[in-house]
Design a protein around this nucleic acid. Structure first.
Lengths: 342, 342
DNA sequence: TGCAATACTGGAATCGTTTCCAGTTGATTT
DNA sequence: AAATCAACTGGAAACGATTCCAGTATTGCA
């Protein structure tokens, strides 16, 4: 008839029992709360014996915080994003956040699914290199809920003026314009634009900027001079070049929506016996490391990738520490770095 | 004196109340359990009204499964790992797993911390591109616990014969040997080896393999011919080349522990006016995409990166689906792909 | 119409923490 | 020596789902 408690086999309660203290005390011990030296030793002994570690799910269920940051990028294989990832890692890990990564590969649906997942998973914050154009708004409601439950989201690549989020990006229009002006200045007139899937809004915007910049510079732009399909990779760049040459044989310059494509296109051109930059000037976008490693070195529109990534963390960390000011927005100026390909 | 329940404001209970059913029924609804058409509609309506989504933390606390896979790699910025990441993403997302990424940047301590974190976070499985050499075993106990609580871990890059885990990797020794033999065949004799930090076991092993292969090929290897420091990047490769030239001015070939370093070293050499491959042959390791994009194209020891990554998922998914067979181990054969740099 | 089998459903216990609230202790002050 | 205060501790109620068990409709079949 003894009323012996069934001696828990697991968790903080087990530790508490073998240490001879209350569960709440063990909890305090782990959360740097104050415990007397005596109990500290007792608990340490019990922990060492059992190899116990607290279950972060239970902790976060009760406390609310997960110490997890969701990061959504289009493609982990693109060096531009990989470089940003490194910055995130350095900044976040040291503050004891872990990162949940999702890649959209240009799919707006995937982007939305990822966002939903992260909502259910209750990440503490989200960094979003979005693909979604302002008009589709597929993810709008999810984002809205996220914000409502005080999960900070920072937008990289576009501004979202429908939602109160921090955002930052690069001035695509200005970048493209610098490239076109330069090309015109060196005497190129028949300029084409190569882009990957315009399902990625940033790329779509660059296409628009191209049209616009051409107009401003009083250059002719036809349907034939814009190609946009496939993934934004070296391979696609290489594949698109011959179809461009076919449609527009007299082209004398191309600018691409990113460096990967530019490199692919440039090498394809060279393989066709076209001289770069003499017969064909090539300009990329991003200035990834590879741009200065290819031969001829790639002239490109530089985005301050690292700087953007750092500022992104800055914004996020501010919100995470409870700051509740107006949403901030930052637009970086791209710079044309002239190397050998144009 | 009415005994009115306080009408929950949140969670599955709230939904249950507004739909007029029991919490357990709502749970069944979300887990594709069987619910009658009538209740299904009621619940759907309630869900739509409130925008409710289940909290995966609570779910996983009770059910055990998190649907989360931990991935630990040395460096997300290295294209070799980025390529693998893409494979993981494709394989795992489609099975509804999400990925928690950690980068160790060659730190064994960080590797251990990441592992501990993942244990506390109760990931369903772990893919580990380990840095740790067999002798340090810093993470051994954590790994042991993980395995004990039935969390499958698959090792990439080394075998761990102390623990019952699946593992796979590439035969470093064979790869290096192929390179050295080839260099000897084309008449190179004064061969040096450039590596990044040997805190990464794979790189350390490649250094050893180099010494060994030189011996086998009856070539002289001195302390001066092996340089190993810094991160395994293009920059380090570039920085190490001049110090090598200083120590060993008559060197006529170098092999590097990865492509990034090889590319850095190669360009640095060219910049010094050294002709590649005539005066200096350069061979890399990995065969990342960049290898065929630099000029001269890089001769390198190819690892079947994608194939390894796919097989890794295969192993993991098998374990995840409950398979309990003997640990498997797979060693891939590297292949020397001869291009222009050697 | 009656009876067994089947399909749903509700209630309560549980997962492993944190956190609030109310003691208990021991030291310090008057 | 009584009173005040801080430091520490224990107990119990959350957090939000899942899951078992038992109970009630519904169906099929004779």
């Amino acid at each position: 008839m003894s009323k012996n408690k069934p001696t828990a086999k697991t968790g903080i309660i087990a530790i508490a029992q073998t240490a001879g203290v209350a569960p709440s005390t063990v909890s305090r011990f782990f959360n740097n709360g104050q415990v007397s030296a005596k109990t500290r030793i007792k608990i340490e002994k019990a922990v060492a014996k059992t190899g116990y570690r607290p279950d972060s799910r239970a902790a976060s269920l009760r406390s609310g915080a997960t110490n997890r940051i969701g990061i959504i990028i289009p493609d982990a294989g693109n060096p531009a994003y990989a470089a940003a990832m490194r910055v995130f890692h350095d900044q976040l890990r040291q503050r004891n956040y872990s990162m949940v990564l999702g890649c959209t590969y240009g799919s707006v649906q995937e982007e939305h699914k990822l966002l939903q997942y992260m909502q259910q998973d209750h990440v503490d914050g989200i960094i979003l290199y979005t693909c979604e154009a302002p008009q589709d708004e597929i993810s709008h409601q999810t984002l809205h809920q996220l914000l409502e439950q005080k999960t900070p989201v920072v937008y990289v690549g576009k501004q979202n003026n429908l939602l109160p989020t921090d955002s930052l990006g690069v001035d695509n229009h200005q970048g493209i314009d610098k490239a076109i002006s330069y090309l015109k200045r060196i005497g190129r007139k028949r300029i084409a634009f190569l882009s990957g899937d315009v399902s990625n809004w940033a790329y779509q915007q660059r296409v628009e900027s191209f049209k616009c910049a051409m107009k401003i510079n009083k250059l002719k732009v036809s349907a034939k001079s814009i190609l946009a399909k496939g993934q934004s990779t070296v391979e696609t760049g290489g594949a698109l070049l011959p179809v461009l040459m076919d449609k527009m044989p007299d082209v004398d310059a191309i600018v691409c929506s990113n460096d990967l494509m530019a490199i692919g296109a440039m090498y394809a051109a060279i393989q066709f016996g076209i001289k770069v930059p003499e017969q064909l000037a090539v300009i990329g976008f991003d200035d990834i490391q590879m741009a200065s490693l290819v031969r001829p070195r790639l002239t490109t529109i530089r985005q301050p990738i690292l700087q953007i990534a750092e500022q992104t963390c800055q914004f996020l960390l501010q919100r995470l520490s409870g700051e509740d000011s107006e949403p901030q927005s930052l637009l970086f100026e791209p710079e044309l770095v002239i190397r050998e390909s144009a």
